[in-house]
Amino acid sequence: MITSSLTTTLVTFATSDGWQLGPLSPGGEITAEGRIVIVVLLSTLVSLVVTVLRPRPDPIKLVPFYKKVRPTGAWGPVRALAGVSPKKGEGIAVIVGVCGGLAMIWGLTLGLGAWMLGHAWTWTAFAAAAAGAIVVASILPGLLREDTTQGEENR
């Protein structure tokens, strides 16, 4: 994490002036979005390399953490040792919820802009926002209810 942060900072400064990288610098100087592309790609690469090069942690030592957090994802060996697992279908619920939230936010944002500019796809965007809102309203309360209870238990 530290390596990634340092690299991001260094690259941001190093690419702030005078670099020309084809489509990322159409006007002769690298654009803000071009800088984001470089930083994201390099940070991801450095993070993955550091993760692979570090020694693997002992799964037994991760059991207390896993029992408390119960994260979804590739925790197979630790999950087997811990004897607990996240609620069934939680990973899917999270992914669907994130997509629903994005549809709601971006649908409203683009729909309002399209409405003001008189575009034909205004109601398509609003429909996407409404569908996203329904998805969020049906998924989020269940997830929050579980964690509110868990949070009270942790205190």
């Binding site: 408390k68 957090v69 999270v94 939230g101 994005l102 936010i105 971006w106």
Partner: peptide
């Protein structure tokens, strides 16, 4: 142009991951 708003509209992805995933883990960790 207006499209450049995507430089910050893309933050919504991180926001949604915070809502549905990370905030719940922080809560569980206390």
């Amino acid at each position: 142009g207006i499209w450049r708003n995507w430089l910050w509209w893309c933050f919504a992805v991180g926001g949604m991951l915070t809502v549905f995933l990370f905030s719940r883990y922080w809560r569980r960790l206390g």
